[in-house]
Simulated assay, not measured.
Amino acid sequence: MAYNEEISSRIFRLLRRRKGLSGKKMFGGFAYLLHGNLCCGVRDDYLILRVGPDAYQQFLQSPHTREFAPAGRVMRGWVVVEQEGFEGEDDLQRLITQAVDFTLSLPPKDAA
């Protein structure tokens, strides 16, 4: 399984009304972009979040959270959250909101 489609659907339900939303397969999973900037996604059964450099260390101290290191290369500002960290809809909403807030602080990469 490349990515859990149920988790991807949960993410999409939270993001679907956002302007500039797009999605594509990457990192061996599925990623959501806002105005061309990667925001979040799903790989296997875990959530990938772009939280930015300021919140990065704080996130790494949270339960069920670790560095995102595709192909062994750590991507600072990105974290992985295991399913236990977002079982409840409130937890998923909070995590996605934090990723969206950071991503929207970046300059757009496209006109979407």
Rank of each mutant, 00 (worst) to 15 (best):
K25Y: 09
K25T: 12
K25H: 11
M26S: 14
M26A: 14
G28L: 05
G29I: 03
F30I: 14
A31R: 08
A31W: 06
A31H: 09
L33K: 13
L34S: 00
L34E: 04
H35K: 12
H35M: 10
H35R: 12
H35Y: 12
G36Q: 08
N37L: 06
N37D: 06
L38F: 13
L38R: 11
L38W: 12
C39G: 05
C40M: 04
C40A: 02
C40Y: 00
G41H: 01
V42E: 05
L49Q: 05
V51Q: 04
V51H: 02
P53H: 05
P53D: 06
D54L: 08
D54P: 00
D54C: 00
D54K: 10
A55T: 08
A55M: 09
Y56V: 03
Q57G: 11
Q57I: 10
Q57T: 13
Q57A: 12
Q58F: 11
F59Y: 14
F59N: 07
F59V: 07
F59Q: 09
F59L: 09
L60V: 07
Q61H: 14
S62W: 15
P63V: 03
P63C: 04
P63S: 05
H64W: 07
H64D: 09
H64S: 08
T65Y: 03
T65A: 06
R66T: 15
R66W: 13
A69S: 14
A69C: 11
A71D: 15
A71F: 15
G72T: 03
V74S: 06
G77T: 03
W78R: 01
W78M: 02
V79K: 02
V79H: 01
V79N: 01
V81F: 02
E84W: 08
G85P: 02
E89P: 07
D90M: 11
D90A: 13
D91T: 10
L92M: 03
L92I: 03
Q93D: 13
Q93T: 14
R94C: 14
L95F: 06
I96C: 02
T97R: 15
